[in-house]
Structures are given as C-alpha cells and as structure tokens.
C-alpha cells in the first residue's frame, strides 16, 4: 500500500536516477576511504603537474566527466525533460557544478580530510599546483560540513535533485513549471525524512548561498588562471567545460 503512493514512487525514481548515474558506488568509496596517496605519489603528481595548467586540465577533465553524469541524472529525474529546453539548459548551467559539490561528500573522508580523486583519496596538498589553495580548502570545508550530517544515499539523491530543480534560477522561461516540480520533490523529500525520522536534517543543511559562493569562486579562479596563461584556451579544456564556464 505504502509503495504505491505517488510520492513514494517519486522517491524511488529520484533514488534510481541517482544510483544509475553515480560514478562509484558508496560501498566501494567506503571500502577505499583509507587508501590515500603516499607522500611520494603526491610529489610525483606535483612534478607531472608542473607545466602551467596541467593540473587545471586534469581537474577540468574529471569535473567534466562528473558533470556529464549530472546531465544524465537530470534526464532521468521525473519531470525534468518535460520542462522546456531553455529551462533544462538554465538549470544545468547554474546547478551542475553545485550538484557535483554535493555529491563530493560521498567521496570525502572527513576523518583525514581527503577526497577520492583518480583512484585514491587525496589531501588538499595534491591540488596545490592549481594555485588556489584557499578555494580548495573552502571546497574541502564544504564537503566536511556535509559529511558530518551522515546523509543516506536517498538523502544525497534528493539534495542533488533539489539543487538542480530550483525555480529561483535566473533566466527561466517557465518558472511556474519548475516551481511545481521543485514543490513535488520537496514534499517527497520531507515525507522521506519524516518516515526515516531524520527531520532534523533540514535546518542543519548548508545554506544555498554557500554553494553559490563556491561556484563563483570557481569562475573567478578560472578567469585568473586564464589571464595568467592566455595561450591555453581553447584546446586545453574539455569542450563542455569551456561551454559552461568560459
């Protein structure tokens, strides 16, 4: 009886969309959470990343792969492809990186501040060659704060869906339709939290502004990097990354 309710069906679809488009399963990520890069491996990484932009290119590549999966997640979300094409693009352009940042909490070990990157867990030190240590620290801080909430897979799935389906994004054509979908997702999320006795999660979630600030910082850092290395574009970064961020 419970399973047949429309909201329960929506919950199952959101979770399935999310699981079908995850790069790595949470069990595998948990099993490998102490498999960290050694000091020597970090040095090798930093040597390899020495030519200007090598590490930026590498990270942009990984980020683009993650964003492609966010697009697939969006396509599987109930109601998303029924939105007009303009609004699908607006929501993804504004929200794809935010979704990746939320998903990062699954691949983050808060006990030693490392994140899963190219096969192992890496400390912020590995990303030093990017030349934006403060920004990387802010991302790690965000992941740590989300990690501390110990979200279930269903909760992360809804957080991602609600980051994406946000009727407050600028340039939406049919704001009402996006708001309707957002409302349905919010109701299903609240029902899930009530059922699992996790209602305390909502007030503890990081504010939306924090995600927005991280995305703005990413753009600022990218622009600063491009100013320093004007010859690198257009070939250095994946086409989708360029389309979204430059």
């Amino acid at each position: 009886k419970h399973d047949s309710s429309p909201m329960e069906q929506l919950t199952q679809k959101v979770l399935r969309s999310y699981q079908e488009t995850c790069q790595l399963g949470s069990e595998e990520l948990q099993l490998r959470r102490w498999d960290t890069f050694s000091r020597e491996e970090i040095c090798t990484y930093q040597r390899q990343a020495r030519p200007p932009g090598k590490m930026w290119q590498r990270c942009a590549g990984r980020l683009t792969e993650a964003i492609q999966l966010v697009v697939e997640f969006a396509k599987r979300l109930p109601g998303f492809l029924e939105l007009c094409q303009n609004d699908q693009i607006v929501l993804l352009k504004a929200g794809a990186l935010e979704v990746v940042l939320v998903q990062m909490c699954r691949a983050f070990n808060g006990e030693n501040r490392t994140v899963f990157f190219e096969g192992k867990y890496a400390s912020a030190e590995l990303f030093r060659a990017l030349g934006c240590h403060e920004f990387i620290s802010s991302i790690f801080d965000f992941a740590q704060s989300l990690c501390a909430l110990h979200c279930s897979e269903s909760e992360v799935a809804f957080l991602c869906a609600l980051v994406l389906v946000n009727a407050n994004r600028r340039w939406l054509q049919d704001q009402l339709q996006v708001a309707r979908l957002q409302g349905q997702l919010e109701v299903a999320f609240r029902l899930l939290l009530r059922r699992t006795q996790r209602e305390e999660l909502l007030p503890r979630l990081p504010p939306q502004a924090r995600l927005r600030a991280l995305c703005s910082q990413h753009l600022e850092q990218l622009q600063a990097f491009l100013r320093l290395h004007p010859g690198l574009l257009p070939s250095a970064f994946p086409p989708l990354y360029r389309e979204l961020f430059t």
């Binding site: 697009v71 492809l81 094409q85 303009n86 693009i89 993804l92 352009k93 086409p239 389309e243």
Partner: peptide
C-alpha cells in the same frame, strides 16, 4: 541559449546515453 550551449543541448537530446 540553445545556440550558446550546443554540447549541453546535444547531451540533453541524446536519448541513447
């Protein structure tokens, strides 16, 4: 917007992925 985001638009249209 579609013109400016051809890759994103194509990914959204691609039903095989």
């Amino acid at each position: 917007l579609k013109e400016k985001h051809k890759i994103l638009h194509r990914l959204l249209q691609d039903s095989s992925s």
